[in-house]
Design a protein around this nucleic acid. Sequence first.
DNA 1: TTGTACGCGTTATCAC
DNA 2: GTGATAACGCGTACAA
Lengths: 347, 347
Amino acid sequence: MKKYTIKDIAQLAGVSKGTVDRVIHKRGKVSEKALEKVNKILAEIDYQPNLMARSLKNNKDYVICALLPNPDIDPYWKPCKKGIDQAYNEYKSLGITIDTHLFDPTDTESFLEVNAKVLKLNPDAVIMAPLFYNEAKKSISTYSEANILVSIINNRIGSDDINNFVGQDLVQSGRIAARLMEMITPKDSEIIIAHLDEFFHNASFMQQKEKGFRDYFENSLTSDYTLTTCNSIESNHYKTLYDAINNSKNISGIFVTTSKTYKVAKMLEDFPNLSIKIIGYDLLEKNLNYLNSGNIDFLIHQNPKQQIYLGLSQLAEHFLFDKPITEELLLPIDIINSENYNSYLNQ
Amino acid sequence: MKKYTIKDIAQLAGVSKGTVDRVIHKRGKVSEKALEKVNKILAEIDYQPNLMARSLKNNKDYVICALLPNPDIDPYWKPCKKGIDQAYNEYKSLGITIDTHLFDPTDTESFLEVNAKVLKLNPDAVIMAPLFYNEAKKSISTYSEANILVSIINNRIGSDDINNFVGQDLVQSGRIAARLMEMITPKDSEIIIAHLDEFFHNASFMQQKEKGFRDYFENSLTSDYTLTTCNSIESNHYKTLYDAINNSKNISGIFVTTSKTYKVAKMLEDFPNLSIKIIGYDLLEKNLNYLNSGNIDFLIHQNPKQQIYLGLSQLAEHFLFDKPITEELLLPIDIINSENYNSYLNQ
DNA sequence: TTGTACGCGTTATCAC
DNA sequence: GTGATAACGCGTACAA
């Protein structure tokens, strides 16, 4: 399995390196005869261009801007720092610069400002969590017009200008929660689907999770649960959810579609004689505490760290080695209990 | 954030590239004065050697041999092919060759033969699943003496000659199964820990899983399960397990410590009026079928594909970019149910 | 249409 | 001790 170089091919074909290069890259200006000779050799051997040499010759420094919600405001995004650091360390010596810009997930204006700032920097690519649907769409097409690659993480939004999406199948995620719920609650009981307030209001992903959750039970022949959806917001002290729990005596489980699962666990401390299972999302410290104490039964891990790492990695390898970018990268949906969360944290 | 090259440093220090190189690599033969000047510059700037250039100059082709059980004999190893292919494609153009050698997991002799063959090839590294404890240990030290790096996947074996281990914490894996079992079975029932025959008889990893499983319940204040261990082998038609199920009327769950979980599910088809939960290991097709039909409740994913991919990746990056090798890489322990297995298969 | 020469950054070698 | 130079493989400008 010898490694052939352009020089080797030139020698074998009896032409010069330049001619071989022109054939390989289809730059034309090659005589019939030469073309034939080179193609014959190329057909015989398996030429693999040396990516190091190519990249070295390129010798360009690429800049990727990462636009993320401030993790101090929404701790869900905390792990992303680690993912960025990992990608940064892996690619810094190969000519990739990663530049993080945080915005306030409660403030559309802040998102727009950060996008304006980034646009001025004119990076080679942008990777972002598109929390605000309309604003994100507009920013994305602006980037695209400026020939800036766009990678999206966490939740998909429809746009032809997106080069890469890394995330999870949220409908399936709801189905997973449903199957788990089915296993740990009595079949004839009531289950609440709780959408706790999110900073961003046009997010469709809570609905996707609900859809999957309901679909699972609707297609099930053996179950006869009563499913109730409950939207609840902090400014109202989550009163709707509280009342729902307080008024029904047959609730066996609550499916929380957001990372604020711990708030439900906390609320249930007011009802010590109810036995209600909780399934929710994300490995926030507060969630893990309740998972450990047994008050939360399962969490589903959305793996924000891996999402941003993989997105960055795809972009970097594309710039450096011209690797194709996967348009859609769906991560596994991890089921977490008190015993395995630790194995995910140290990743 | 300018990128400094050796040339830049040489210019700044008023010396030649050669001298800078000697300082950086501590090759000596540098005058006090020159050393000082260069070190001063190095202290001021953040010099990051260009890994592409270094690797290009190196221009060595590295060979890694992968020693794995034949997946036609034990389907657990099937996904490894994908992992190897992935690493192969990723690194082939960068000068890494991966050479797979299969052995018969039921036959110690075959393992030794393959090792002998590989030793003759004198590769730069070997990655293997050390199924046969004593034989593996001996082979490993032979490789080490021949200056061949050794990477181990799947199950750890003690040896100072191992450069890298990729796998899971098997004791913790047992605890995870225990927690799941606790959630889906009544607290005062009987649970069987079933060790189904493995091809290799000196494997300690079934014991590790059992230890974790038992530990969990022993430290639990709320549970009073009766745990029974059952070793059962195919040549005896798994009679010991069959009898255990047949004779007891209070079994609520079976924890299968190997990938042959489907055999237990199949056996339970003989007992249609028993309701016994099954938790086992690995995403074999036969296991997934029973997971889908609800006869297996949970599987734990040992991720053999990711194990070999990460091991290969570590070795490759070490050879190419001189990256340090993690001695021990513990993968997350994935909980699988009927709804999320698909998201792992397409990885 | 073709071949040659040069540069990318690092490292090894070889004169001085 | 030191500095100049060649080489790795690729891409390309330029001369023929």
